[in-house]
Write a protein that binds this DNA or RNA. Structure first.
Lengths: 161, 161
DNA sequence: GGCATGATGTTATTTTATAACGTAGTCAGC
DNA sequence: GCTGACTACGTTATAAAATAACATCATGCC
């Protein structure tokens, strides 16, 4: 049973289970190897809806395994998960978060609350379209657009208005 | 005389001089202290149009001064410059770049070429508008939007099509 | 001049990430 | 089943990026 699941009023265990199920399906479909280690790291990334640092995951992993794992263990698993689109890296936080819609095309857009730390993936086509338009005007060939918006989520605005 | 100025066909010395002049004016206007050290770090950030890491700047600074400076020296100067809007931090690169339009409101948008390393500040209102729209729809209060688009600039596309 | 404030110096440490090399599973084809 | 190639994982060391804590120095104001 994973720790610290119910941050608000939703069944986070369900989020985790869902994410793992989708990951299993996607990797099977692609012939990618979602090994026990990688699966476990994915689960630890999904501990909450807050982006998690590699070393936080490392600590959890060490605790679970009863022995201290090496940073590379986690970084390699994360690399795989990011490649498969199961996890995103938040550049402005040096942290990782589970992808809300793996399998679908995603361009990596996030609303990050500076109060509670939660990050919500938005992937809105309008932002992507705006970026594509401007890039086209300048002859710039887009490869990987990163959008990370810091601010305050609705809940946190209500708490301290 | 700064090193490695003319990357392409523009007078980069002019870019640097310009940036310093504007910085002087802005800081004077605001009563902010652009000290010799900070001014020098700003100049080193402007070495090229490629984002530069703090430690690269540190190295240059040490060389200029003839003695090795401490990381904090550079980080503190950079912090000041970022606060004043004279320099931006590129989150996805852990690097810093001179602001193209200090004084004006800017939301920090960049096109970063993965081939030549150059980064161009765009600050396009359409991207900002798209972000604001989506944030408003979700009740998210925007504080600091970060947009960093990786890809290939026109020049580099021509070189290897 | 004296004092408050802000800037810089110095040393140590933390956090994040990668390099280099070796071992051990895993799967395909025979 | 065996072999060989490939991929994943373990281990140790190190690099890169950033900050903490505290001392000292400069600057501007009264």
């Amino acid at each position: 049973m994973p720790a610290a699941t119910n941050p608000a009023n939703h069944d986070h265990d369900h989020c985790i289970a869902d994410a793992l199920t989708r990951a299993d399906a996607l990797c099977a479909e692609r012939g990618a190897r979602l090994t026990a280690l990688r699966r476990q790291v994915l689960e630890l990334v999904w501990t909450s809806h807050r982006p998690r640092g590699a070393y936080a995951i490392l600590e959890d992993l060490s605790q679970r395994e009863g022995k201290s794992a090496a940073p590379l263990t986690v970084y390699r698993a994360l690399e795989f998960l990011v490649e498969q689109g199961l996890v995103h890296r938040l550049e402005s936080l040096n942290a990782y978060i589970g992808c809300a819609a793996p399998g679908a095309v995603h361009s990596g857009q996030f609303l990050v609350c500076e109060a509670c730390g939660n990050a919500v993936e938005i992937d809105d086509p309008r932002i992507r379209a705006a970026i594509d338009t401007i890039a086209a005007e300048r002859g710039f060939q887009v490869d990987r657009p990163t959008v990370e918006v810091r601010g305050r989520c609705t809940d946190c605005q209500e708490k301290t208005p």
